[in-house]
Design a protein around this nucleic acid. Structure first.
Lengths: 192, 192
DNA sequence: AATTATGTTGACCGATCGTTATAAACAAGG
DNA sequence: CCTTGTTTATAACGATCGGTCAACATAATT
């Protein structure tokens, strides 16, 4: 094996993720990706195999970041605060996102997850892990007396996931900051 | 003016709506639309003006059906039951929808509403009217004593809209029937 | 220095995109 | 019958799509 690549594969993937995130799978053309990633056709196909494999890698990278965020929150060892912070973070991210890209996972769920089993699996797994994060938090919170035991962890976790999904969807041009905060507050009310 | 059209414009629009609903704006090709609507190129451009105008008409038609459903529920004059029935209906529709088309309005919100102001307006208005339906129901329900007055109509209406949106999104391949019903039950719990 | 293996480059492919144009078939009013 | 306005059917438009490929450049190996 003669030598190394001339471009940084990881940062190129990062750029590709941004393009797919902003435009979606269908609307992101190879030309868009090449421009965003700063490389030419051959290199893209050589390094990533094509549009679909590149998309999967980009989606996995995004999911990795999701995983990192959740792990960091869970390490707080204060479930109620961790869940509240998660909602605040999502609202802040959504509001700061000037071009209304929303959540890459959720966007993908609606665009092509229906038609591609591999992609569907990644999306479903990611959302299920968010739900599991909520459920574990509620169970621990209830056990420690931080949260009332009058509600069911399973059902409440699903409701919280639903609210997160909705914040991400409605944040894309339907609701403004105040309304998104209202939903987040309702989420906190659910576990109080 | 010699004579009438040879095809039923309304039923053709209905078919177009189905195609756009199932495939989305970008992925629905003119060929798909022609096949679905049962007419040829010239007629489509003559009668509807092109792909984008046709999409807007189809979206408006869908929104009309949304409007009709809400009006029918509101005519029940039993807000709590109307809201519960709305959630049950949405869950039933979502579960019965074998090809996971979801809600045309919400799908559109994520696909092109960001880039087209006219479409964005239709989507935003439709969702706002659902929220208003919830708010009016809660206000009337609280006034009549059907619902406790401990929660804020404005905030709760937004939360209910969020749950509806999430049911429609998660119903597209992420959650199965049981989980969707759980979310609907949480919605009912919000107004109990 | 020659060879070999890999990455880069940009032209090129057939297919499909949305749209327009053209010409024939057709049915009403004059 | 002839005009008029519409529907059909088909061809063709330029643009863009994702993907391929042969020529070239480069660096390690021989």
């Amino acid at each position: 094996m003669p030598w190394e690549k001339s471009f940084d594969e990881e940062s190129a993937l990062e750029k590709a993720m941004q393009v797919f995130w902003e435009k979606g799978f269908e609307s992101a053309s190879i030309a868009d990706l090449l421009a965003g990633m700063g490389l030419n056709r051959g290199s893209l196909y050589n390094a990533f195999g094509g549009k679909q494999p590149l998309f999967v890698k980009a989606l996995l990278k995004y999911d990795q970041e999701r995983q990192t965020l959740l792990a960091k929150l869970e390490a707080l060892d204060n479930p109620k605060k961790a869940i509240a912070t998660f909602f605040d973070t999502i609202v802040a991210l959504t509001v700061a996102d000037q071009d209304h890209k929303g959540c890459f996972l959720i966007n993908t769920a609606l665009e092509i997850a229906t038609h591609d089993e591999q992609v569907n699996k990644i999306v479903r797994n990611g959302l299920r892990e968010i739900e599991a994060f909520f459920r574990r938090g509620i169970e621990v919170g209830q056990a420690r007396g931080d949260m009332p035991k009058k509600f069911d962890p399973e059902a409440t976790a699903k409701a919280l996931l639903a609210l997160i999904v909705a914040i991400r969807v409605l944040g894309r041009g339907v609701f403004a900051e105040a309304a998104l905060r209202t939903i987040a507050d309702e989420a906190k009310r659910l576990i109080s």
